[in-house]
Design a protein around this nucleic acid. Structure first.
Lengths: 95, 95
DNA sequence: CTTATATTTAGATGATAAGCTAAATATTGA
DNA sequence: TCAATATTTAGCTTATCATCTAAATATAAG
């Protein structure tokens, strides 16, 4: 969970996720969307992979990346818990 | 928005937000919950403030911090857009 | 006006992180 | 097997960040 928040803190990685939301892409196709070297993009993809925000699968020469929404939904859960009524979750709350 | 994601990437700051979700607290009361020096906590609070995730107001000697859910709701919106059906938001999508 | 309390600011340090180039690995096809 | 293509790994540099101590600021109380 912490890894996911860390991964999401970088704008390049968030943009990668938005691209993958549209459709699966190879590492090279992703790199083409940025003014950043391929090795750097590969590094970002690795961070996203460790956070389990993306998955990869080799297809011939290419490695195809796809988004994994499971962790994103968990993060959303954190926000939902946050946005609930202030102080609601007290056991000793008076009615 | 980027500031918010950056601010949320630190576990100490996320815990501060969770404390403030329960009730407003002074800077000192917040610092007491961590094994981190008061200046460091002050620094974290400043980052949260710049991201507009918290607000502060002086009350006598103390400065009281409170959570501001507006930006958090915006971040939630980002997640919602992300979790929508893969590829849905194309203009040229065929029905 | 002096002291005590609460918080922040300043300045320094060590750890993380993002970026690069060059080299290594893996796959395909001639 | 050799050359081309796709991606990652290694190693380095620079910048950002979390943390600390010491000093500064602001309010309250005697």
């Amino acid at each position: 969970m912490n890894d996911a928040f860390k991964a999401l803190s970088d704008p390049t990685r968030r943009k990668i996720l938005q691209l993958l939301k549209e459709k699966d892409l190879s590492a090279g196709d992703i790199a083409d969307q940025f003014n950043i070297s391929k090795p750097s993009i590969s590094h970002h993809l690795n961070i996203l992979k460790q956070a389990r925000l993306v998955e990869d699968e080799r297809q011939g020469q290419s490695i195809i990346y796809s988004i994994n929404l499971t962790v994103m939904q968990e993060a959303m859960g954190w926000f939902l818990g946050m946005i609930g009524t202030k102080g609601e979750s007290h056991d000793d709350e008076r009615k």
